[in-house]
Amino acid sequence: MSIILDKVNYVYEIGSGFEKHALKDVSCVIEKGEFIGLIGHTGSGKSTLIQHLNGIIKATSGNIFFDGEYIYDKDYDMRKLRNKVGLVFQYPEHQLFETDIFKDVCFGPRNQGLPEKEVQLRAFQALRLVGLEENLYYQSPFDLSGGQKRRAAIAGVLAMKPDYLILDEPTAGLDPKGRDEILGHIRKLHDETGIAVILVSHSMEDVARYVDRIMVMNDGELIFDDKPRNVFAHYRELESVGLAAPDVTYIMNDLKRAGFAVDTDAITVEEARDNILKMLNGKG
């Protein structure tokens, strides 16, 4: 059970004079249950890449397999793929259209052709999973805050019970509290349901503490694909492509260079704190 990308290329506006090679020979395997951060700065091809995963964009060349099936086969059912791979676009709250949140969340499962009872059950479950309070379920989207709307929109995709959930910049434009809430709920969701999550972001800091694997895109190419620690070890290269490792990485590296026996692997503030304390206590 996995998504396999084999040398996927994508060129925008072929034959128009404004051609843009958005993906260059991208190959990777995404297993069920993984928690992946996809990172790259604006225009690096991350949004293009994820739209391939549920077949909304068709690769110019290269192959994509989902659960062992070739998705560009003539008789392959794209709807099945879209039911399995849930894609939450940037600013998903802009897609809300129903008169209340609950109806909007029902849209996805209803399109799947489920019986009405099942549709409503799933909508309930999804809204609960994203942590929206029940008194908001029957409110108009206009009455909700930005963060609440976004969670409702994410629930709209979750209600389809996908095996893979892809979120494009789910924290864009949110304040730190809204950001932590969303990311926290996504992590919890992953831990509780075993759903595979791909988190697209341009901020290492956001992603570092939540994900198990990081893929870094630059100029259409996949340049790193590894555990966060191993990726951050390349912080100099990350800088050269306009990204940065978390602040903690820099502090730990500076400390080490200054002669302290710290572990440069730490990626969260908590880890770094424990590590520094351990080192100090060890000395004392």
Partner: peptide, 9 residues
């Protein structure tokens, strides 16, 4: 695209 991803036809 967003609605297609939610199964709109």
């Amino acid at each position: 695209k967003a609605q297609i991803a939610r199964g709109a036809d």
